Simulated assay, not measured.
Amino acid sequence: MFQSTFSSDIFSELENLHQQVQRAFNAGSGIRGNTIGTYPMLNVGKTPQSIELYAFAPGLDPASIDVNLERGVLTIAAERNSDLPTPNEKSTVHINERFAGRFRRVLSLPEEIDPSDVSAKYRDGVLHIQLKRRESAQPRRITVQ
């Protein structure tokens, strides 16, 4: 007598709709917004003495990574070559989910960074950039007399 226009599992239908909207707008599900397709993925944190940045970029030659700091803007650029054969009449690529090509990430940094005290190390596919904070920006304990 009464026929529902909804699926028997409304929650799975809502999840499907949510996934379609995400794909349509290429939006990440995280609180930071659009993260899908951004390469390399970054983790950024700070200590009282420094800002620590980790870029996850496996398969790079450390000599090919270009890290620049100019006027409070940090730029990371490099190129990762594809490990797959070039598609032609004798080879076919079925799945290619790994990023290959040139990339560039640009980040604005706070003024508290000391541009003369920055180090970068690449190990096991992770680029670690340590940006020291100016002495005047570091927390200090003041003795009460």
Rank of each mutant, 00 (worst) to 15 (best):
F56E: 11
R105S: 11
F56P: 02
R71Q: 13
L84V: 02
G30F: 03
L14Y: 12
K90Q: 12
A57V: 13
A100T: 00
S108P: 06
A120H: 11
L131K: 02
L17I: 07
S116C: 05
I51H: 06
D61A: 15
N88K: 01
A55T: 09
T86F: 01
V126M: 13
L84R: 02
P87H: 02
L14R: 14
L131I: 03
L107V: 04
N81C: 00
Q49N: 10
R123N: 12
G33H: 04
G37M: 10
Q3L: 07
L109T: 00
I31Y: 07
I51M: 08
R133M: 11
P40S: 09
G45C: 03
R123D: 15
R140F: 06
S8I: 10
Q19G: 09
R141A: 13
D9I: 10
T38L: 12
P58N: 12
S4D: 10
T5I: 13
R104C: 12
D61Q: 15
E112T: 02
I95T: 13
A120F: 08
R23Y: 05
L84I: 00
E70H: 13
G59H: 03
V44D: 02
T86G: 00
R105P: 01
R98Q: 05
I36G: 09
D9M: 04
M41A: 14
P115E: 09
I31E: 11
H128L: 10
L127C: 05
G28K: 03
I65W: 09
R32T: 14
Y39L: 13
Q138S: 06
Q138I: 10
A137W: 05
L109A: 00
A77M: 01
E97Y: 06
D117A: 14
L107E: 05
N68Y: 08
R71A: 14
G72C: 08
R133E: 06
I31G: 12
L74Y: 02
E135I: 13
K46R: 09
V126H: 07
V93F: 01
D66P: 00
G101K: 00
M41W: 05
F6P: 01
I113L: 08
L84P: 00
I51G: 02
G72K: 08
F25H: 09
I129V: 14
T92G: 02
P139S: 13
I31W: 08
I65F: 10
R32M: 13
E52K: 05
R140T: 07
T75W: 01
M1R: 09
S8V: 10
L127Q: 08
L42M: 09
D66R: 13
L107W: 00
V126Y: 04
A27V: 14
R80L: 00
Q22D: 07
S136V: 11
H94V: 15
S12A: 15
L107G: 03
V21T: 05
A27N: 12
P115K: 07
H18C: 07
G72S: 05
L14S: 12
V118I: 15
T143E: 12
V106G: 04
P58L: 12
V67C: 08
R71D: 15
E111H: 01
R102K: 15
N88T: 05
T75L: 06
E13I: 06
A78I: 04
L14F: 11
G33F: 04
S91V: 09
Q20C: 00
E89F: 03
S91P: 00
I142C: 08
Q49G: 04
S4G: 03
Y39M: 13
